[in-house]
Design a protein around this nucleic acid. Structure first.
Lengths: 341, 341
DNA sequence: CGTTAGCACTCAATCTTGTCGAGTGCTAAT
DNA sequence: ATTAGCACTCGACAAGATTGAGTGCTAACG
């Protein structure tokens, strides 16, 4: 569709604009080592590219700026993802060299690493646990009236809650309850736990002890909480360093969005496996219409392990971010596989 | 020291400036209902107040702005803390009506409430646990190689960690270890736990099992982590709505500071019991030289329960924030007392 | 003697105008 | 097909000009 020369020019413009954040003129393009045409020729091509909707002019007599469609073409056809820089590689290596036991630790640290290496904002999601199963349930009394409930999932997530224990329940009752729940619920997917809890176990449970609703409630509530993946963000203030966000209003709406987990979940919902790039208005969320979101989602044996993502200006360094996400997501999947060999 | 009229004028200026964020002129003051002097008279008084260092002029022929000293005088001598508004009161009531078990829940929610009610940024600190003691320690095995360690403190804080269990340690060994640690460590203040762990228990422990360093390590590390109070912030982006922070650079340094727990701890260190106001440069932390920090620290039976604080522009609504912090801190202390009656 | 009207003065903010230069589109020459 | 040349556009920037809020001072007033 595009001629070789047009592709080259578009590539040069996007490249330059990503670096400079200023509209790119024909002259500066023609001065590049890899382009051997006069400004006039470039101008003609640029006019054509604009007609095709790949470039935009902030105003007559300004240089050209890539449009969303232009970025899209750039990402889809012009980029060649290169290997990661030495420095980034080292940083990631030393990241995995750290001793981590929980998948959640990996997920959480990944957010930090990503924002440090890119100077953009990172958003990282833990696995969607609705397909996970309950692995272990335990109640540990801490005094006469309360206990710690511990819930371990098949994805390696551990959580605790405080439960107050109704009067008149002894240690042996508790042990019975715990045993029963473990027996019946181990291996049951979270989404089904609730119904199983009511249908099968309710009767047996009330046989042991009358008033154990609270314990069951906590279990239910915790499972419900975990049906949604955990979200971590890092480097949120990095957007403040981008010249296109000198407008406080815009920045605030972005930062506010980053503080709202449900928003972020909506943002990530329906991202397919593998790497995806969403540019500007492709995001559908008003607040980040001037941002691009690149996500990498990965899984192990059919179960989604989570997503890592970078939020930056549409004018972000796609090459670097894409290679970084690709590299890191693969390493993370590897780590998980090793733990669950 | 100041005449009644001077006090009245200073009060009017600070009041107006807090509302408008614009330098206050003599004319607008003289138009206020509670001031019955001509602009000329007011000007004379303003000149005197400036000479005393209570007011400042951004430039000749601009109105006056309170200096830090001016705010200080205002806070110390002119404010009368009034009762809380109906709406705020209701919100707080419904906050405490929620069912909360842990002190930490109260602390965490308090941050949210505060930022919502004030539209400023709230910073809330949990109790300093270095004076707290270990109440309960438990190890719950979750599979062959790892266990969940649960630590309960006298301040009601519960925490869990994953520990990997060295090979060759059986269930009964673990039980022995747990019993031993509980025996020896219960009631010991955190700061002393480490030394006790090494001096008294080391020998006995190694008698039971050789390689239990990891478990001991986790205990140590967790305790160390908890020696510092937990910090919660909320509404950080609210500073973006203040007209004086339209400079992105300043905002970023403040937001970055809010993300760094150690910074916040430094900020709160040495705040005395009760309510304290730190205005502008009184804060000593460069990033918030243009902010005021109001804190309320409260305790129960001599043990500090934590601090709640509001960070806003020096031009903040001191009356409202002071009444709010006073009210909320008292209610929180009450809640704690009720739980630990 | 404290208070106030009057007035000249100051200075940031805002608007006006002019200049500059980067960049374009078109046309004609190569 | 490419490019040199040229007229044109328009934002950015700088240099006045204008405005108006606010001051400080002085002299008059009750």
């Amino acid at each position: 569709m595009l001629s070789e020369r047009q592709r080259m020019i578009l590539n040069a413009i996007v490249d330059d604009y990503i670096r400079s954040a200023e509209p790119v003129g024909s002259r500066s393009i023609s001065k590049r080592a890899d382009v051997a045409f006069s400004p006039a020729t470039i101008r003609n091509e640029m006019a054509d590219l604009e007609e095709l909707g790949l470039l935009e002019q902030p105003h007559t007599s300004a240089g050209r700026v890539p449009s969303i469609k232009g970025y899209r073409y750039y990402v889809d056809h012009l980029i060649k993802v290169e290997g990661l820089g030495e420095r980034d590689m080292l940083k990631i290596r030393s990241f995995f060299a750290e001793k981590m036991i929980l998948w959640e630790e990996v997920i959480g640290h990944a957010a930090t690493i990503l924002s440090q290496l890119t100077n953009y904002t990172s958003i990282v999601l833990g696995p969607e646990t609705f397909q996970a199963t309950l692995k272990h349930f335990q109640l540990v009394p801490i005094n006469d009236t309360s206990a710690v409930a511990i819930i371990v999932t098949s994805t390696g997530h551990v959580e605790h809650r405080i439960v107050s224990i109704p009067e008149g329940i002894g240690m042996d009752d508790i042990q019975k309850i715990v045993n029963l729940l473990n027996d019946k619920l181990s291996g049951i997917p979270f989404i089904k736990v609730k119904s199983v809890l009511h249908s099968e176990i309710g009767k047996e449970l009330s046989r042991i002890v009358e008033s154990c609703e609270q314990i069951v409630n906590v279990l239910e509530k915790t499972l419900a909480d975990n049906a949604e993946p955990k979200v971590y963000t890092s480097g949120a203030t990095n957007i403040l360093t981008q010249p296109e966000f000198k407008d406080i209003g815009k920045v605030k709406s972005i930062l506010d969005m980053l503080d709202e987990t449900p928003m972020l979940l909506r943002l990530f919902q329906s991202v397919p496996n593998g790497i995806q790039v969403r540019i500007g208005t492709e995001n559908a969320l008003e607040a980040i219409n001037q941002c691009s979101l690149i996500t990498a989602t990965f899984s192990f044996e059919g179960q989604s392990l989570g997503s890592i993502g970078i939020l930056g200006p549409t004018r972000m360094d796609y090459v670097k971010v894409l290679s970084l996400l690709d590299f890191l997501s693969k390493d993370m999947a590897l780590w998980y596989a090793k733990q669950h060999k």
